[in-house]
Design a protein around this nucleic acid. Structure first.
Lengths: 132, 132
DNA sequence: GCGTGATTACTCGGATACAAGATGTCCGAGTTTGAGCGG
DNA sequence: CCGCTCAAACTCGGACATCTTGTATCCGAGTAATCACGC
């Protein structure tokens, strides 16, 4: 039960892209270098963000990734769901006849967290400095 | 990013123990059978609950596990922390000069969830029926 | 009837096996830009 | 000066390789209750 590193990379990358917006697309190599990841791995992560419609890829020379949606619309939850999936964090395997009361509590707790992530946008954060 | 099955087992087992309290200790085999787990694996999970001081083991014939603390004091968060650990769900690997603003948001969201889990106790749930 | 030992019913802990998912790499393919070259 | 070609700079996607962690099993050891047996 931990957020994956991919989520960490995705959030930071989106933060960088928001800062760069609405400028030219940013190359994977540059993004990867700033975070100390391999470009190939980061591109796999970004592919998931593309599929969720948050960013788009620009192929060819001077290509890279850039924001697609309005930067004010992108919430933390959007990014996390794109990477981790939207499945519930807790799945009860017990053979209940009716709804599992434990699962209900867990789901409610999860929703509390998601609500906060849904209400926080990347533009709420201070711009990221390079030496940060 | 999912809660482990061990957490599921632990929560349901604690629920069963709360129902049985303050009766005699309940054997692992019985607890495991009700959940469709192997007794040996469940005992490993329960060991963690013992170490956290929530339950105690009674060895020997007619032994098993029983509640140690007051049943009204046991929160969901206690059980989850005993199984999953207390580490933060999100760890930023980026080399920031100061605090990571992304991590701050994530930690806050996590606290929202934990707050709900801390305020919910096992005794808030309806007793568990065998055929449930 | 009473003590003593053996059996039984349990938990405990370590070692190990297995599976799944996270993490990361490699490589071939497609795409756009831009430079170079010939007409 | 224009257009064509080709190389360079990119992303894309699949196929692997590796590592960690969750899940589960096995077995020997310890412990307490109970039973059996002999005095």
């Amino acid at each position: 039960m931990k957020f994956t590193k991919a989520t960490n990379y995705a959030l930071h990358t989106m933060h960088l892209l928001v800062d760069a917006s609405p400028a030219k697309p940013v190359g994977v190599q540059q993004l990867a270098e700033m975070q100390g990841v391999s470009p190939t791995y980061l591109s796999k992560i970004l592919t998931r963000l593309v599929k969720s419609g948050m960013i788009e890829s620009v192929s060819g020379a001077n290509g890279g990734y850039q924001l697609l949606r309005n930067k004010d619309d992108i919430t933390f939850l959007d990014i996390i769901h794109a990477i981790e999936g939207t499945a519930s964090l807790f799945e009860c395997n017990f053979f209940h006849s009716d709804e599992c009361s434990i699962q209900a509590v867990m789901k409610e707790a999860e929703m509390k967290m998601e609500l906060h992530l849904k209400n926080t946008k990347l533009t709420d954060l201070a711009p990221m400095n390079k030496n940060q």
